[in-house]
Design a protein around this nucleic acid. Structure first.
Length: 451
RNA sequence: GCCCUGGUAGUUUAGCCCGGUUAGAAUGUGAGGCUGUCACCCUUGCGACCCGGGUUCAAAUCCCGGCCAGGGCGCCA
């Protein structure tokens, strides 16, 4: 009989404890600090610990902020102090306590804890220092991305990225765009130029898409204004601070737009989106300590010909590509700002780009640069099938690889124009980072496939 | 793929040029102490020379190769 009673008691206790945990409201630190005098439960990570003879200070971090837990040893239960003394960086804990104002705590707010549970201990040593006191090299930061993201700076970068994408989406939806999702596994490596990744696709070979180009064009012939934000692939063995094997692209295509219309649109989109971003993500830009870029000017539209003239002392001749070394000179001359380079030579632009009616040597095309960094390129596309067929023949691409696309152009294709923008490059500019890998969560390059 | 620079505790770094030290420091981590700390502080323990070969009595140090990293170039609808 006694045994049964004990079992019942144990069951009752467990049930009560379960109920307590289930009902306990977890506060995010951002909200908790507004509840002065309230008893709240916080869950998060041990960011820092400091101890003096009479006090134990724990900086608790969650996804919304940080708060100091202040334990006065003489006024806490010995159990609580004992548990708190075993804490380490990045242990996951749950703490109940009262939020109180403090003239001494640097944040002005602290929590006086009375109950503390360790949910999961972190195993030490950690792969890097999360508090940022000891900096880590980029390669360490990437190897330990799950930890480096807990640093204020990297956390801020990816919160900014998230807001940026949201603002772009909102902006485009508001303007009547349709969001599309094109396939990333494709049959033909058709666009020439860039090397593509081969993949085994059941019994046949396929490729990873380098862009949504032909798909967004086909969709623009229906929805008129479409966009896609997605990842694309190229198998170039590039070793530069602004190329990756897997990159994030923001693509737009609009029926009945000229390339000038698209440039107008892109310019106002960037101005609206970035100024909106600055107000929404202000705290993250402050944490990064990066200057906000000025957008209070008209983006110049400089002809490729004019750039060549500008660089005529540097051994560049008409028809040469504007590689980064030349663009750096351009940046020195016109400054670190946005500008378009327009009307590129036909041989430097992809086959689907329309040439000028009165001069087939140049195209209705543009790049958007920020200083020496190219962040977008676009133009007016060939929409008449006979023009495309002639072009494909001229540059030696196989017509049969494009048969479906040609059919699409023959099925009532409107004139259209669009662009592709390197979203991570834009994020680099906004966050003042010098290597694109810093602003990509888990970057892929020639050497890196992990994590 | 080419050129330059580098690889030392978990992290960041000194030493390397001019070979022989107990390989130094910060941070971390273990123990103890300490005015409400806030990059706390103090004492003390722990923890490292990228891999392979060569030169030499002796290599973290010099030489060669490899791998990796950063920068520059090339490649790049």
């Amino acid at each position: 009989m006694q045994a049964w009673r004990n079992y019942y008691q144990i069951y009752f206790n467990i049930k009560q404890e379960y109920k307590r945990i289930k009902n306990m409201k977890k506060y995010y630190i951002k909200n908790a600090v507004k509840n002065i005098g309230q008893l709240v439960t916080l869950k998060g990570w041990v960011h820092e610990i400091r101890e003096t003879s009479n006090f134990l200070f724990i900086i608790l971090r969650d996804s919304t902020g940080k708060i100091q837990l202040t334990l006065k040893k003489s006024e806490s239960t010995s159990n609580l102090v004992d548990i708190a003394k075993t804490l380490h960086h990045e242990d996951v804990i749950e703490v109940e306590g009262v939020i109180s104002k403090s003239n001494i705590a640097r944040l002005g707010i602290e929590m006086i804890p009375y109950k503390l549970n360790i949910i999961n201990r972190a195993k030490h040593p950690l792969m890097l220092d999360v508090t940022g006191k000891i900096n880590a090299e980029l390669s360490t930061i990437l190897d330990a991305r799950f930890l480096s993201l807990r640093r204020d700076d990297y956390y801020s970068i990816f919160k900014i990225q998230s807001e940026l994408v949201k603002i772009i989406r909102d902006y485009l939806y508001q303007q009547g765009f349709t969001e599309i999702f094109s396939p990333k596994i494709i049959k033909f490596a058709t666009e020439g130029g860039a090397e593509l990744f081969k993949v085994q696709y059941f019994d046949t070979e396929a490729y990873l898409a380098q862009s949504p180009q032909l798909y967004k064009e086909m969709c623009a012939g229906v929805f008129e204004k479409v966009f896609e934000i997605g990842q694309y692939y190229r198998a170039e063995k590039s070793h530069t601070p602004y190329h990756l094997s897997e990159f994030l692209s923001f693509d737009v295509e609009c029926a009945f737009y000229t390339y000038n219309d698209v440039m107008d649109f892109l310019e106002s989109l960037l101005k609206d989106v970035i100024s909106n971003l600055y107000s929404v993500s202000n705290e993250y830009f402050n944490k990064l300590g990066v200057d906000k870029i000025n957008l209070d000017y008209k983006f110049e539209r400089i002809k490729y010909d004019e750039i060549i003239l500008m660089l005529n002392n540097y051994g560049l001749k008409w028809g040469d590509d504007l590689t980064s070394q030349y663009l750096k000179i351009v940046e020195e001359k016109i400054g670190k700002k946005f500008f378009f380079i327009i009307d590129w030579p036909t041989q430097l632009k992809p086959f689907y780009t329309y040439e000028h009616e009165n001069n087939n040597q140049i195209t209705k095309s543009f790049d958007l640069n920020y200083g020496s960094l190219e962040i977008a390129s676009g133009g007016e596309r060939i929409y008449k099938s006979e023009d495309l067929i002639n072009k494909l023949k001229k540059i030696g691409l196989k017509l049969e690889n494009f048969s479906i696309f040609i059919k699409a152009l023959e099925s009532g294709s409107p004139p259209h124009a669009g662009f592709g923008l390197g979203l991570s490059r834009l994020l680099m500019i906004l966050t003042g980072r010098k290597n694109i890998k810093e602003v990509v969560l888990f970057p892929r390059d020639v050497e890196r496939l992990i994590p």
